[in-house]
Design a protein around this nucleic acid. Sequence first.
DNA 1: TTATCTAACGTTATATCATAACAGTCAAGG
DNA 2: CCTTGACTGTTATGATATAACGTTAGATAA
Lengths: 165, 165
Amino acid sequence: MTTQAQDNGFCCADHSGAANVAAILAAAEARARATGARLTPVRRRVLEILLQAHGALGAYDVLEKLSAEGFGSQPPVAYRALNFLVDQGLAHRIRRLNAFTACAHPGQDHRAAFLICESCDSVTEADAGAVSAALDQAAKAAGFDLARATIEAVGQCSACREAAR
Amino acid sequence: MTTQAQDNGFCCADHSGAANVAAILAAAEARARATGARLTPVRRRVLEILLQAHGALGAYDVLEKLSAEGFGSQPPVAYRALNFLVDQGLAHRIRRLNAFTACAHPGQDHRAAFLICESCDSVTEADAGAVSAALDQAAKAAGFDLARATIEAVGQCSACREAAR
DNA sequence: TTATCTAACGTTATATCATAACAGTCAAGG
DNA sequence: CCTTGACTGTTATGATATAACGTTAGATAA
Ligand SMILES: [Zn+2]
Ligand SMILES: [Zn+2]
Ligand SMILES: [Zn+2]
Ligand SMILES: [Zn+2]
């Protein structure tokens, strides 16, 4: 199974478009230098792959591309790079899809929710500010000390709904 | 790895306690009869196992118990029963843990959030009414037709926080 | 410069989670 | 009785993820 979103002409997230990819990559590089994190070739390339995917990619999808380009060909190569990007806030893990997607707003401290389209597999990162606040509230009511949360919605994106009409 | 919560004396969710287990099982049975769903021995036993676990169990944890009791010993046996329970609203899948937990409020149409303790692995089902409303709002703003959502928080439960003080 | 240290890389091997496909069982309905 | 369909169990395989270890390359210090 591939988890790549189909590239069917319409774009889903803010990071679509080659120009934006370059800008985000540059910003990631600058931020890495600033924080001391090392955006190595594999890591940088994985981020680029995610940015170009317009959707979430499974670790093995990423690995396949890496392998074809002369990087390592074994799972840890992909998982390490992906986990690094997630730790750095440059990518997100989509648990429902066992997949990863580039962050649409890197650098900003943001709480994200993901809107997963069942028709086209696109994954859109939405601002979860209000959702997160409500969740904080619910956790507080339960006496739970919330560290982080996963918020994933499944349904149909606007483009697919239009197309289905 | 076992995903079973440690049974360390304190209970986490509403369904704790043998009496409550029996009550929920009875209610599940009644509801199954009413809707035509068949709560067969394996399914009933799996629900019971989840109810007694006081936490989320992986499919293979459940399978191990089933197998020891004379039920089938292969993965599909556990996955089928678990998926049935989830479909019936009698259990929930916790994606972050690759695990399942009995629903604390079966029969009610509810949107749930899960509070996962990193210290004791307990999983508490919290009412996600407000969270869900905020998420509906966010989805609507993005033109996304939301079918269902996964809301999982990770942190530390009150009991563990107390114990750590 | 050269020695030393450490983070990152790549590999092998294995663990863990999940489903496809098919045969046997059994109860309900004709 | 016989068909039908839901359920169970099996074999086999696929998909996702990490442990462990040797090697490499970049940084640091003598
Ligand atoms: Zn983001
Ligand atoms: Zn879509
Ligand atoms: Zn529930
Ligand atoms: Zn706890």
